[in-house]
Design a protein around this nucleic acid. Structure first.
Lengths: 257, 257
DNA sequence: GCGATCAGCGGCACG
DNA sequence: CGTGCCGTTGATCGC
């Protein structure tokens, strides 16, 4: 049961020395900024990271119930008289907008306060991202359709948001949108927009193919209505790699000869 | 510097008694499931909540670098010989898919381990959500355009995914999509889809209005190209409420008489 | 339970 | 910086 003053010093010290501070206690949380919120009394975990990240966690759910991102200015103050006082930890942040947002955690009591030195330069390596699947597919578009050829970005002109731009055996443009999970209506509208934009810019007949492991019934209907296509992508991820199952199959077939 | 065995007991005890466990130490993290990932050695904070939530936090950024949602089964085991061993904390979860995903945290050393009782029944009250703004607007559609009337089955309850469905002074259908922040291309494609679906289902001339505090240049161009409309929504949030500035203005105007 | 959408989304990469 | 879009998105609401 640390005192408010001890807790205040732990937070200040953590901020000064680049450590991570952890506080557990009963508190009320107020937020005002892009929206506003009020969280009444309860026990929570407060995490204050050295980059200004500020997380209030409840006893359930993954997401912090209130938070502030990196760059927030965190302060701690003991307010009110002895015995009736509280520890107020505040995080302020400037919005790109110019306005500011503020979160205040009012601790009525504390179970625990401590700060920790956290040294960590490691970066997460992820396998099975959409980008990676897209690159794997690009390496062999014949998997989707024989004769499909990728179109290289012309002299520095970025296609931007289109995953894969290709040309079919008849010379038609093919816009390919890859999704790593079940594709819904949003994926179809996205593809439809790319196809529409591409057809308008290039004034050329353009096909659109949605590539995903699954597609919802509504999304499939909409695809058909718009004359777009679906290709089922089976893939699997394991620790040092991601693999498209079709490519594996193809390898086996080649191996049979 | 708790021993691995002490730490294991803290985790097990926390799980058994519904407490939240906090561990700080040097670890390696492996994940395999919807994707796969590897995070090499570094100091991190591990949070294990009583609902199975499992969060690995680095010293920076808001999001957990590795995680598992509510419902995960968490276990802890000491592996390897004395002196060379490690504490392995594992979270397993069944995907809706049927497959399972797993995250393993291998602690090589520990700075801190403790569990805390967290009692919290409070729910966050948020002001300024899109839903709330939509309801405020619905209460007085004349703000957007004189003669606009909401079409609703039940008072205040909106149907389906369309934010607001209304009828203008000429009896045309009006689909209104409300965004609480700057609207981009996705908002426009979404609105376009609703308008297209509505027009097709009702076989009736249909307008579409995008309502947002701002709109990106590209989105505005696309709106115009599709014959859709934009209405700038100014609002402000403060702690017990959200207010649409236009409505405030209108109140003042009425008060002037 | 699945489907669709919002979120104070966060984060990243590109212009 | 803004714009666009992915994310092991998560969380919620409606069917």
């Amino acid at each position: 049961m640390p005192s408010f003053e001890e807790a205040r010093q732990v937070v200040e010290n953590a901020l000064a020395t680049g450590q991570m501070a952890l506080l557990v206690g009963n508190c009320v949380v107020k937020y005002e900024g892009r929206a506003a919120s009020k969280l009444s009394e309860g026990d929570r975990l407060l995490v204050v990271k050295s980059d200004g990240t500020f997380l209030v966690h409840q006893s359930r759910k993954m997401n912090a119930i209130n938070y502030q991102g990196p760059g927030a200015a965190v302060t701690a103050a003991v307010e009110g008289g002895v015995g009736t006082g509280e520890l107020v930890v505040t995080a302020r942040r400037k919005l790109p907008n110019g306005a500011t947002e503020k979160i205040e955690v009012h601790f009525r009591s504390l179970q625990f306060t401590q700060s920790f030195p956290i040294n960590d330069d490691a970066e997460l390596k992820v396998f099975g991202s959409e980008r990676q699947l897209s690159d794997l597919l690009m390496a062999d578009l014949n998997l989707i359709e024989p004769g499909l050829k990728p179109i290289q970005k012309e002299s520095g002109v970025r296609q931007g948001t289109i995953d894969i731009l290709a040309e079919d055996f008849r010379g038609r443009l093919v816009v390919i949108e890859v999704k790593r999970r079940t594709a819904g209506l949003d994926a179809v509208t996205q593809l439809a927009r790319y196809v529409e934009e591409m057809g308008r810019r290039k004034d050329r007949q353009t096909r659109g193919i949605l590539v995903a492991p699954e597609v919802t019934p509504n999304a499939l209907k909409m695809l058909e209505r718009q004359g777009l296509e679906f290709f089922k992508l089976d893939y699997e991820v394991s620790n040092p790699s991601a693999k498209i199952k079709g490519l594996e199959k193809k390898q086996k077939m080649l191996g049979e000869f």
